[in-house]
Structure formats: C-alpha cells, structure tokens
Design a protein around this nucleic acid. Structure first.
Length: 525
RNA sequence: GGCCCCGUCGUCUAGCGGUCUAGGACACCGGCCUUUCACGCCGGCAACACGGGUUCGAGUCCCGUCGGGGUCACCA
C-alpha cells in the first residue's frame, strides 16, 4: 500500500513553527516511502476569507520547499481538499452512523448538559452525559421538535472495555471507553465537526499514516470509534511530542510573544529580525512578525534549509553526531522509530548556529541574489541592478564572509551604498577614535595624503601603504586604523580595513576622509 | 480534579543490561590568533529527578514517589 500522509492546517493566516515540524515529518515520511503528501484545509469553522488566510501558509510551505502532491492549488483525485466544501460527504457519513445505531439525535439544550456536568463535578464523579434527551424514534423526535427543541448528532460511544491501538512513536496505548464522551459530530444547523470530518477525509483521501502532535492523542479513541463505526480500518497513528517554549517545558504558543521576549536568547533573535525589518520598512504585523511564525524567518532572510534542518532535529535524531542534513539525506534517513517521546524546547541559539553553518556553504552568486532584495527594499540600490552594483555586492559578501548570517545582515554594510556626504557616524566611535585622541585628525590628514599616492588601489596595496605609514610615524597599526574606519564607514566595527578601502575605491575613500576632517575642524572651532 | 503522556549536561540529543570514570552539538568560561567585530584553533565547566526492587551487573527492565506537561467544547 502506498504511504499517504497529510497535514491539515486551518486557515489562520500564519504558519506556526510547531506546525511546520509536524508537516515536515509527514512530508519526510511520505517521501521516504515513495508515497504522497497531501494538504487538506480544515476550515469547517471558518467564516473569514479562507483564501486570504490560507495564502501565507501555502507561501510558507513553498518557501520551505515542502511540496504537496494533492491539495489547494494543485488539485488531485480526491478533492475537494477544503472541508468547507465536503459537507455533503460528512452528512452522508453521519446518516450512516445514525442508521447503524452508533450515533443519535440529542435534543438536550446546552444549559441542560451544563447542569449535568456541574452536578457531576459537585459529586466529584466523572461526567458522562445521561442521554436523557436522546431521541428513541421519530415520534419522540417530532414531539421534542414541536416543543421548540432542536437536535445535534452525538456519537453513541461504548461504555465499557478499552480502545487499544499501537502508536508508531509511543507504542501500545489504551484508553477506557468509560472515560469518553458522546461527542457531538453534527450541529443543529447540519454542519459537521472536526473529528467526524477528519476521519471521513482521512479515509476518502486514502491516508495511511496520521502523524500529528501529541495534543491529539486523547482525541484518537473517538476517531478510532468513528472509523470503525463506518466500517473502516483506521490509519496508523504517530503522535509527535510538542515543541516547547525556550527554556520551558510548556507548549510553544504564538500568543505569548511578550512573555518569550523576557528570554534573552529569544529576544536577541527577535530584535535582530526587527532591526532588519525596520531597515527595509517592513510593516511589522504583531501577529506574524514573531519567531514562532515562519514568516519571520522569510522576511529577514533566513535560509529555509537551515530552518528545516533545525526543526528536523527538534525531536528526531539519526545518531550521536550527525547534525547537518541535505533534503536527500533527511529523506533517506528519516524514520518514526527515532522520534523522541519527550517535548523539545525551541532554542533560538541553536537555530542561529544552523543558519550560520548553512549560510557558509552558499556560493557567492547565490548569496548575492539573496541579499539584493534587501538592498532594494532599503532603497540602497535601484530596481535595475547594474553590473557595477552586482560586483560591489559580491566584493562585500566576500569580505564580510561569515559575518552575514541572514540575508538581511547585508544592511550592516549600508555605508558602501550611501553617498559619501550622506554617511551617518556612530557618535561613540566618533568620539573615541577621532575626537578624544587629539593627534587623530592630523594623523588622519597625513594618511589621507599617502592614500592619494601609489598606483593600484587593491587591498594589498592599501595594506602596504598603511604598514609603511605606521613605520614612518612610529605608531601601532591600531592608532590609525580605527580612525580611518570611523572616517570612511562611520562605524566602530566592520570587516578587514584594507578590503573596506579597496571596495570603496581611492576616490571615495579620500573624499570620506576629507568630509570627516572638515566635520572635525568645524566642531572644534 | 479525571484521564493520558513525559523525565540524561542550561538547551537539542546519543545511549536499546556490562565496552558509561555517560559520547556529540549549541550555549557558556578560559587561552591562542588578531586592526575592530566575527571566524578559526586549543582547553575547560556541565547531566542519568528520587527511592525501592530484579540482576553477578541498571542511565538502560519493574514498581512507587516527586516533578513537568498535554487534554478534558455544538474549536481545530
């Protein structure tokens, strides 16, 4: 039998990182076994604009390189893949359940159920609905209806024995039927609920393995019951541990951003992203610009492969040392047996380490392509890219090497793209390197004269020049280099000084030093 | 509270009865390198929740305790 797995997001407008991991494991499992991965949209309870709320999710998966064989935008033989369009199918199933006597029409009012529940609580016994308003036949139903009542359909769950099944991750599990409820599967208005819909879809789509978060483990008995009641063999189940908060064992939530920001590592991750977002004028939407949501990583220029690689290792491992996986390797090596049972907490530092490592292996031209949109959005380069700009970007990338961890980090080197007289100076660096050392301006002026001489203006040539200058002045390299750096980049830190000057070129370097000297002169008068 | 799940360094994990004085990675702390920031290299700190069993032998099996978490909808 062909392996068929699925991921069933509800259209909420954002892709949660825990959801991505679940989807990834499903995708990997299907790819590993030469099967299919299906995307189904759980919009049974959605009144909002589904398409609009779905787009970010589909975009997220595409960006991550998690493709689906059937589902929205690609179709497939089992469609429609939107639950909102499958109501008739669900109602057929409910009818079948009713006929088989495994579901019933319940005419209880919500407050009546509530009263029973409270009574049970008061008496400290587990609640289970009495079936007081279960219609025995059509006559009784008609009677209650004429009394102004309406019916929901409930499952007629077993009251004794247990539900047993083998979970591919957790092993044998058992639940007492007596602890289960007669869950509602269809509302009075005829719409059906998640559990029913999910079981019907899994069957209709030929899903063989349901790989989902452990939150669903306790839902499994009722779904198991529905499947059997409909005469179907339930799929295999595999319940993944949830992804926990940084530094905690609680489930990661997209609603607790403010709380997570108290965690230093999480905050650093967020603020780094936020700086980039500010620079490109990204209107930061509070509910999606959040490291718990995938959009965050795409917007600031993370590598999808790094995110995926990190997520892969959150709850799964191959052995005691392998950490870096290409897509092919992860497909080859993935297995449910090696999924962990304990929750794994989201560690921003480790994610960044993966990003860093993956970024190192990106060829310069690819990196340039990644970085270009950020320069454009920050208005540092125009929409049409000239060869000169491309060349400069590649030079910067080479000089910066692994200092650029995410594509948006290119903005740390904005000084290479602004006009010489528009350069912004870090005031602390300015003070420390140009104002406080009283001899700095004059020395800088002398160095500027040297820069104007010589033939070539390569990094090597500039280095030579500076070494000679230091000898002649009988000073250490540090006594000139910092002043030059602040003068030409405005910043206290950067990559190699000689590369910096070479990329800037002789003309701009000299002009920037002149501008800095003028500023110094006018400030001291 | 009922039911269920989980419990190895700060974090992700390896470990499927002896080779574990518990291995790797990230982080952290030193040192080296160095024009800054990084990188790199070298070194270091750091864990089997606890208590009983079983066994010649337990991180590994069993029971209990404690701790953490999930879930208990006419949400998905």
């Amino acid at each position: 039998m062909t392996v068929r797995t699925r991921f069933a997001p509800s259209p909420t407008g954002y892709l949660h990182i825990g959801g991505v991991r679940t989807a990834l494991f499903n995708w990997l499992y299907s790819r590993k076994h030469g099967g299919q991965f299906i995307l189904r949209i759980d919009d049974t309870d959605q009144q909002r604009n589904v398409q609009e709320a779905l787009q970010p999710i589909l975009d997220g998966f595409r960006w991550l390189g998690i493709d689906w064989d059937e589902g929205p935008e690609v179709g497939g033989p089992c469609g429609p893949y939107f639950q909102s369009q499958r109501g008739d199918r669900y109602r057929d199933a409910v009818r079948q359940l009713l006929q088989a006597g495994l579901a019933y029409r319940d005419y209880a009012r919500p407050e009546e159920i509530q009263a029973e529940r409270q009574a049970a609580e008061r008496e400290k016994r587990p609640f289970r609905y009495s079936r007081r308003w279960m219609a025995q036949d059509d006559r009784q139903a008609a009677e209650w209806e004429s009394a102004g009542r309406s019916a929901v359909i409930r499952l007629k769950m077993p009251t004794e024995g247990q539900c047993r099944f083998t979970d591919l991750i957790r092993g044998d599990v058992a639940f007492q039927w007596a602890d289960e409820q007669d869950h509602v599967i269809q509302r009075a208005d005829g719409t059906c609920l998640y559990h029913l819909a999910s079981v019907v879809d899994d069957h209709d789509f030929g899903i063989t393995h349901v790989i989902r978060a452990v939150e669903h483990l306790s839902n499994t008995p009722r779904q198991w019951f529905i499947a059997h009641a409909l005469g179907w063999q339930p799929p295999q189940f595999a319940h993944l541990p949830y992804v926990a908060e940084p530094g905690s064992t609680q489930k990661l939530s997209k609603r607790k951003l403010a709380q997570y920001l108290k965690n230093a590592d999480f905050r650093k991750l967020f603020e780094h992203g936020q700086r980039i977002a500010d620079r490109i004028g990204l209107t930061v939407a509070a509910d999606t610009f959040n490291p718990v949501i995938v959009d965050f990583y795409r917007e600031v220029g993370y590598l999808p492969d790094a995110l995926v690689n990190y997520l892969l290792l959150l709850g799964w491992s191959l052995d005691d040392r392998t950490e870096d996986f290409t897509r092919d390797q992860m497909i080859r090596d993935f297995s449910l047996e090696r999924v962990n049972r304990a929750p794994a907490s989201f560690d921003p530092q480790k994610l960044v380490a993966f990003e860093d490592r993956h970024m190192r292996s990106v060829p310069p031209n690819d990196k340039a392509a990644m970085v270009m949109p950020f320069l454009q959005q920050a208005n540092l380069v125009g929409d049409s890219l000239t060869d000169a700009i491309r060349q400069r970007v590649v030079q910067i990338l080479e000089a910066a090497s692994d200092r650029i961890k995410v594509a948006g980090d290119i903005l740390d080197y904005d000084d290479f793209f602004v006009a010489d007289d528009q350069l912004a100076y870090d005031s602390q660096a300015w003070q420390k390197r140009l104002v406080k050392p009283t001899e700095a301006p004059e020395r800088l002026a002398r160095f500027r004269q040297r820069l104007a001489t010589g033939e070539e203006f390569t990094a090597e040539a500039v280095e030579h020049l500076m070494q000679q200058f230091v000898l002649d002045e009988s000073i250490g390299l540090g006594q000139i280099i910092h002043a030059v750096r602040v003068a030409v980049t405005g910043k206290a830190v950067g990559f190699g000084m000689f590369e910096t000057l070479a990329i800037l070129g002789r003309e701009a370097s000299i002009r920037r030093i002149d501008i800095a000297l003028q500023r110094l002169a006018s400030a001291s008068t």
